[in-house]
Simulated scan of single mutants.
Amino acid sequence: MPEREPSITGYLTLGLLAGSDWSAYQLAEQLGRGVSELWPSADRGRYAVLNRLHADGFVATRQEHTGKRARTIYSITPQGREALAAWLRTPVRPPTVEFEGMVRVLLSDQGSLDDLRATLARTREQALEYREMFARYASFISETGGTFPERRHLFALANTFMIGHYDHVVSWTEWAEQQIADWPDTVAPARTHGGQVRDMLAPGREALAGDQRTDW
């Protein structure tokens, strides 16, 4: 085994290749079918990832010709399958969120209330778009089996999570818009809306109290 282990994007690439051999373009297509929403960095530097996997012996390459045009086809090696299986046995990392809209919310005191409203509105629009996209994927997988019919039970698990995730984002933006409806700006509510802030934080306090009651 090489000293360098694959990145998460590398393991994802190996997982896609475990089902079929692909060209770099075909791999990009697969990443664009909802996978990049689960792991956003997967679509960035994918050619560099393939080169590293090849250099480390996790994938093999061959040339296929269509007329005069040649393309490189990637396939997983036994070493790649072994590395992927070993990684799946390791403890999973805690989930993280890459959410630009939330970063903007956190920094909204440096902008206007209209800026904050626009951020919430656009975040809701995006969530609705992606929820519809995953709903279409669900229909496609249900009707045809999808690109990986042997994995459709696993795609069903992930698809349901993603639809629920975007449902939550839509609900949160609608709630947040109601909360800021009577704010005069993005600064004063820290002083003028103390009761509202406590109410917004109540679910967190209640969840903590519940955890403490069940901590035997």
Rank of each mutant, 00 (worst) to 15 (best):
P184M: 07
G146Y: 05
L17I: 10
D56T: 08
R191S: 12
R46W: 05
E132R: 13
E150K: 09
A55M: 07
A70F: 03
D21N: 07
Q30K: 11
R69P: 00
R4A: 11
A138T: 15
D115P: 08
A118G: 11
R198N: 10
A158H: 07
L107R: 10
I180G: 13
A60V: 04
G101D: 13
H193V: 03
L128R: 11
E5Y: 02
A55F: 03
Q212F: 08
Y47Q: 08
H168Q: 09
E5F: 03
A121H: 08
G101H: 07
I76Y: 00
L88C: 11
W22Y: 14
L201Y: 06
A48K: 13
I163H: 05
A60G: 09
S75Y: 03
A158Q: 07
Q212V: 15
A48V: 08
D56A: 07
W39F: 13
D115W: 08
D185C: 06
G146I: 01
N51Q: 13
L106G: 10
Q126C: 09
L116P: 02
I163N: 02
R205Y: 12
T77E: 01
G67L: 01
N51A: 14
T72L: 05
E177P: 08
A135N: 11
V92G: 06
L50K: 00
T192W: 13
V49E: 13
P94H: 04
F148G: 08
Q179G: 03
H165P: 03
G146M: 01
T77C: 04
A202T: 14
Q79V: 03
E177K: 13
W175T: 09
E177R: 15
V170M: 12
R81Y: 03
G210M: 06
L38Q: 09
T72S: 01
T13C: 03
W87C: 13
P94I: 01
T186C: 15
A86H: 03
R104P: 02
T214L: 14
H193R: 15
R81S: 08
L120C: 04
A158P: 03
A188I: 04
S7K: 08
L16C: 06
G34H: 04
N51I: 04
A70W: 04
V197D: 14
Y11C: 03
P91M: 09
G15W: 07
A55L: 10
R198G: 04
I141S: 06
D21V: 00
Y166I: 06
R205D: 09
E82K: 10
A83H: 00
Q126P: 00
G111K: 14
